[in-house]
């Protein structure tokens, strides 16, 4: 049976997709601002975050409305609750992109410390994780969501690698500390983005399977 509620749910889904697209774009631009040393991109990222913030509030209100008016149960309830959490994670990712952009603004004022190789790689990986997590939600693909969770380790190890490398720069020449710390922070922000994408995937798995895999409860 076709339900009016299904239309509302697909409206919620497309709002999340819209938010995700904006957030992915923000990640990509913030890393590009750093790597290609483009100050105008920094401002674009900061500007687009306002839109993301507004969208977060809209999605929250939509979820509350759906809960109050339809009192969904089972898979519908799990979807709306997951959507609320995912909405929140996406907004936090947007904030991390702003943080990266702000680091970029400082870094590009100074001469290049070293060619940036791992950071753009990490940026692409994190961005793809966010995209896949949302695709998993929209296409009800729990295998893809599980895959996103596993990819988090790759991002973590890149982050460690960046940290170790920049540490050697700082030890050799303390004058590099300011610039190195900025880059270490960028690595940290990207690593956080991957964590948020992992959280989204966990929420997607809860929505699809009714199983909570957070904090590795399953393995214990």
């Amino acid at each position: 049976m076709e339900r009016h509620f299904d239309e509302e749910l697909s409206g919620l889904k497309s709002q999340l997709l819209k938010m995700s697209a904006l957030v992915e774009e923000a990640i990509s631009r913030s890393v590009k601002a750093l790597v290609e040393r483009k100050a105008e991109l920094v401002e674009e990222v900061i500007k687009s975050d306002e839109v993301i913030n507004m969208l977060e509030i809209e999605i929250d209100e939509l979820c509350l409305k759906l809960l109050a008016l339809y009192q969904p149960a089972a898979v519908d309830l799990r979807f709306v609750c997951s959507a609320m959490k995912i909405n929140n994670e996406l907004e936090r990712i947007g904030d991390q992109a702003v943080n990266i952009a702000e680091r970029a603004r400082e870094v590009i004022k100074e001469p290049l410390l070293k060619p940036l190789i791992d950071i753009p790689r990490m940026g692409l990986l994190a961005q793809k994780m966010v995209k896949d997590a949302i695709d998993a939600l929209v296409n009800k693909d729990d295998a893809l969501a599980g895959d996103v969770c596993r990819r988090d380790d790759e991002v973590d190890s890149l982050n460690n690698q960046i940290f170790r490398e920049l540490l050697t720069y700082m030890i050799e020449d303390p004058k590099t500390i300011t610039r190195a710390v900025e880059l270490i922070l960028v690595g940290r922000h990207l690593e956080r983005i991957a964590d948020h994408a992992t959280n989204i995937s966990e929420d997607v798995i809860y929505f699809l399977k009714g199983k909570n895999i957070k904090h590795h409860l399953e393995d214990q």
Binding site: M1, F5, P72, A73, A74, D76, R78, G210
Partner: peptide, 16 residues
Amino acid sequence: FTTPSKKVTEDYITGR
């Protein structure tokens, strides 16, 4: 009401 085991139960309580 959160995670029914059977598809039929889910379809009934979600009004499908």
